[in-house]
Design a protein around this nucleic acid. Structure first.
Lengths: 207, 207, 207, 207
DNA sequence: AATGAATGAGATTTCATTCAT
DNA sequence: TATGAATGAAATCTCATTCAT
């Protein structure tokens, strides 16, 4: 079901010799450290040391730690977005339940395939509401249009605000997985997916 | 509907003379600044100045900025928790739909009554997944037991994992409100509440 | 042998009502804290609290912590000086050995009678060589003149520099006692006195 | 008589390129300032500026000013200890008087060769009697065993406590030199040495 | 007179960033 | 190009001292 989920953190520069390797190591170390300690508790020198390169090398690859962080988030987000789109596309002729399940599974796959990157992407970070840096997030576009289509077809409860429902679901899903990744006695993957599927707005019962 | 929602940030020490006033000003300024800029982009000097007190005064009230932040989160969380409990209690003899609506309304009321404090409480902060500070959060206890009760009564879809569903809903609801508080063209309060109500796990349709 | 050795830290103001009591408490607490932590690791607020008075009260009695410290050192030193003079005077008609023993005993008595004050007086403190505050110390005047008298009488080794010998003895004696006050398995008081007596310059053998 | 007395403050890291140089400058400036003003009246910024390096550089070499101070004391003490041991060794076949003179000379040589370091080592510092930092000091081990040997041979006054006598002498000697280094009209080096020699416990007359 | 909250100057310490090697 | 020592701006924090109550 889950296709190949190995995530290449950076797709842009497909690794030259040493230079590419250093960059990859920086991204990997950064993901690990941001995931464990949070953006504010990690510093460039530490990332460099953990990557086995000099501080100067860090700066030859990234403008600062925020650039590295942004790269991780952007890459993670677009990979995830693509995975969701692909899953959706593959299931587009199957019944609604299965379409929903396919995207939920793609989401869970992504989180399991690279937990560190997942945490970096979804730990809301220090970007307080208006910290300048615009909080990147999963686009709700695709889901909104799906819900709109259902509404047109009369299959969606008219009391639902499409935009709010989409945001609600993505937020709930991503935070739930954040908990799940670290929770020891958490539900099984199967139960988790079943729960998310049932709570998906597209399957909310009409009233 | 919404009872008195004025939130006293600190209930513990109900403001003695000057000392209590200074503390209250620090908490208020802290809430405002953390909400707007995030924990990592605020410093003690700035909070002190914004509160109209000296730096030293800051430190005579709080160990450091994290202590002030923690106090805000703790207070906010427990106030919210109480409000939810009260709403639940008041509605306990009405139909399920109305019970759900009551708690959702209490939640929204809280967010509207003091948006800054709300943002501080629910902006995930810099506490990377495992940064020591254990990502305080709303207790899902109450909601889980409500769902359990419904399950016993055969009114809950058996495919739902109670614990996951509760977390999912609280996460979705709190993040959605975070967006809603700042979004210009967002749905009306009524639509927002209607949507959250319909997506509440207790009302998920049985299948 | 040892007469009454209770030391009144401050002789100047013989305690009025509350005011005198507060002053006495400040001096006592200061002695204790300076002795245990050193001048640089004690602050006025702490002394005040330990004395059971307000910070403001501290400043109504002493200009700053150095003034309190100075008062302790001055008082301790002059009390000691007097004790030595009295012991010397009382023994002035006895043989040299007994005269020496009498002053050594007076010295040890002083240290034992109020160890905290003793430590404050003789812990060289933070007054690095040229820290402004002139390192107060025991006057060697009396001892120097005694040694001079011995020399005149031909009873002192001519190779001894009187001034250096006096300083040497007082330094050795005071530091040795500092160690002795805290050393668990240290020599008995008797052995200590016997040793100091034998090492006194006045009894150095002529060569 | 005095061999080469140039003291390298730090023997451990014999100065790599820039890094070693900065470290050496910090140690030298630190010694000078601690000697003149005392540990409590010197701050890291000042040491850095006096060394011609940035504040940050200070902290990249030493944890704090106490670490720099500790390094000075430790190095000074062990250098002195070695000098004393060497002097003792070289004189071991000569008469007792000459052995004593040799170690006294080594001690004085050390003080004269680097007065600043000497003052740092022997200025009792701010370490109040029990301030945690265990007041490093010259080991009396060597001297105690020499005195023990003399006692076995019946050449030492049995009334002397060996341990007390050793401490007494080192304390007296070191404090006397502290005074001598700065005293303008002090005795000549020769007289000083002669005096210390005569007051050495090993030469105390038997009674 | 006594109190202790408030103050802010100054010391400590961190860390992003530069730049000589 | 890679390195890591050096840097200093900026943040944290302490504590002697003041002053309204």
């Amino acid at each position: 079901m889950a296709e190949d989920n190995t995530i290449q953190i950076s797709k842009s520069k497909p690794a030259g010799g040493r230079r590419g390797a250093a960059r990859a190591r920086l991204l990997a170390a950064g993901a690990e450290m941001f995931a464990n300690r949070g953006l504010g508790n990690v510093n460039t020198n530490t990332i460099a040391r953990a990557s086995g390169v000099g501080v100067g090398t860090f700066y030859s690859h990234f403008e600062d730690k925020f650039a590295l962080h942004r790269e991780l988030v952007t890459t993670g987000l677009s990979t995830l977005q693509e995975n969701l789109a692909r899953a959706s596309q593959n299931a587009k002729d199957r019944p609604l339940e299965e379409q929903v399940r396919a995207t939920v599974e793609a989401f869970v796959d992504f989180a399991e395939a690279n937990p560190a990157l997942y945490k970096v992407v979804f730990a809301a970070g220090d970007a307080g509401a208006g910290s300048g840096r615009p909080a990147l997030g999963l686009s709700t576009r695709a889901m909104e249009s799906r819900l709109h289509a259902l509404r047109e077809a009369g299959h969606l409860d008219p009391g639902l605000d499409v935009s709010a429902a989409a945001r609600f679901f993505y937020a709930g899903q991503s935070q739930l997985l954040l908990w799940w990744l670290d929770a020891p006695g958490a539900p099984s993957r199967e139960d988790l997916i079943a729960t998310l599927e049932r709570l998906h707005p597209a399957l909310a019962c009409r009233r």
